[in-house]
Design a binder for these strands. Structure first.
Lengths: 347, 347
DNA sequence: GCTGAAACTTTCCGCGCGTAAAATTTATTT
DNA sequence: AAATAAATTTTACGCGCGGAAAGTTTCAGC
């Protein structure tokens, strides 16, 4: 590790006594140069520590190793966890992930997609904002860049979609709740950003009707991504108004449920399945913190691992398939993964 | 928006009837070209929608507008929130943030710093992993790139440090707890990754001694970033062993406290300040979820806003100061922000 | 030891844009 | 209106690297 700073590949190649393109080839695939050459490069590499400039590399490359990951809101632990998982998988597959959060803002989502274009990514993993996304922009982007959508379903865009079978989620939970106690009321946001929420509501209604119960929905006012706060405030209001006809509340997602649990606690309403409890509460998603609520939250688990595993798998298959098949496209695949019931103490 | 794709600035400039460097100058500062020229460019911009390639832009620029943000673990809502805040501030200041998480791994932290070099960032906002960071690598990086460190203190590196006055945090909480009930026992991880934890322990001891109480510390086994899980498991163990001499527990951070609250609930130990409660629990940080725990968590709030505000302010001052002052350096500034007591229901 | 293919290396040009210096236009002054 | 100063635009080259084509070496087979 001598102090001499190496500015570029030319200088480094000179130090090796080899031409630059050969060194370039080495970095592309170390096994592609003669062992003797390789040894000299690796010796120099140990002596002078040099790293090729990644962005200059990608500038003129046919296929880069860049992968863009875009989530709607990174401060939501669900997306933070998914993003972490996706990033790791990309790294393991030899790609360079770059993470972006739309922070709930459509303009920012558009900006991110714009700047991703300059990155010339091999592919993009995109969880759209949902209702507020600009469909035109996203479709156009997907037409230009191999993109796998996840979490938030958008028709006719991208190579594939990977998400949850939301109707199955709600059906599963409604069945369970009805089987073990009073039928649930549904607690959700009036204007959910995520389209999953709508499917959950619809299938709640269906499942209830199928079981011969009358659906009852309480819609919380509020905008943005502060779901816990909305759940707490509006949940408290609903409780004060006696808005729930039964002693069971099914929340549209776990973050709302966490807020609602907090409201119950403040109203001294005991939550749980034990004899002395007043109300049962359940959620959707199996949020990372749901096992630590008091009581622990009964929910339907999204399969984080499987969502991320399959998303990257589909993307890489498409990227690497492109080499042989050309830009075939046309055969978009949608995967709706089943959730599993996580029975804890709250319902 | 005609369908013609514009590939580069040359083509776009030709469409405007202007030379490329002039267009380049326009993108650098629209006001720097003649109004007539500007109008023509903006007309063409509206007609053909073209965006300069960001990475090619930065390739040969003296000062880029890139800012790297590095946090140790993005799935921790504290860092997610800080990161969100920092990103927004950078955008507002006209910079291009790129977010990176070390995911708790020192190798990844090093890799991130490496790839940030190629980004030629104007500056970097870095929250090191802490104990497991490679100090040599970080110091070397800070010597090459203007860097403001935050959250995790590291001596002799970077332009500045912005973090919390941890001794003040613990002192504040110990004083409060002692004033309002039994003196607290301290609950922490045996091998904390974050150096803040050590300062909190030390000042807990000091504060207790100063008040004439004997400090008592329970150290949880466990590695990694699953603090809630560790808090729940080890907290449950401590409770079962009757390890706490008093009815008050001060947790080293809120995530640990959240896990501990969960353990209390499972052990049917009532937490809070009301008459029928068995134990008081407090934390440090004012984690985003702390207000939604049951009971809501009494804690010392880190000033998220101020940490991020001051971090970016210092960084941009240094970046923009460089133009005139040269790389003066030498005058590293450390800011240790005071926390404020957040009195909720748990203690 | 020689031929010829395979492997490797070198030459050369291009990616999309920044930027200094030169050439041109525009504004100001007398 | 001419001369000078100021602002703007153009010319020309470079950033750090990828990749095709041309040149050179290596090694098996005879």
């Amino acid at each position: 590790m001598q102090g001499n700073k190496i500015r570029n590949m030319d200088e480094f190649a000179a130090l090796c006594g080899i031409s630059r393109p050969t060194v370039s080839k080495y970095f592309h695939d170390p096994a592609s140069v003669r062992p003797k050459t390789r040894a000299r490069i690796e010796q120099a590499l140990a002596d002078y520590d040099y790293t090729p400039n990644i962005f200059a590399m990608n500038q003129n490359r046919k296929l880069t190793k860049n992968v863009g990951i875009v989530v709607p809101y990174l401060a939501d632990p669900f997306f933070a966890e998914i993003a972490r998982n996706l990033e790791q998988r990309c790294i393991d597959a030899g790609y360079r992930p770059s993470l972006h959060s739309s922070h709930g803002k459509p303009e920012l989502e558009n900006d991110i997609l714009d700047s991703l274009r300059s990155l010339k990514p091999a592919g993009v993993l995109l969880a759209p904002l949902g209702r507020v996304s600009d469909p035109g922009v996203i479709e156009k982007f997907c037409a230009d860049v191999p993109t796998v959508l996840f979490d938030s379903y958008l028709p006719d865009a991208g190579l594939a979609f990977v998400g949850s079978d939301n109707p199955q989620f709600s059906r599963l939970m409604v069945d369970y709740l009805c089987r073990t106690g009073e039928p649930p009321c549904f607690f959700e946001m009036k204007h959910p950003t995520n389209p999953n929420a709508n499917r959950r509501r619809q299938s709640y209604i269906q499942a209830m009707t199928a079981l011969g119960h009358e659906p009852q929905i309480f819609q919380a006012e509020g905008k943005g991504w502060d779901f816990e706060e909305i759940g707490r405030r509006e949940g408290g209001r609903a409780l004060a108004e006696g808005a729930f006809r039964t002693n069971t509340v099914l929340c549209s997602n776990d973050r709302l449920a966490i807020g609602f649990l907090s409201a119950c606690y403040e109203s001294k309403i005991r939550v749980g399945i034990e004899a002395d409890c007043d109300i049962r509460v359940a959620g959707h998603d199996d949020h990372p913190f749901s096992r630590f609520t008091c009581p622990s939250l009964t929910t339907v688990a999204q399969d984080y691992e499987e969502i991320s595993r399959r998303s990257v798998e589909l993307l890489f298959a498409a990227i690497e398939g492109d080499k042989t098949e050309g830009t075939a496209g046309g055969t978009r695949q949608d995967y709706f993964l089943e959730g599993s019931l996580i029975m804890r103490k709250s319902a």
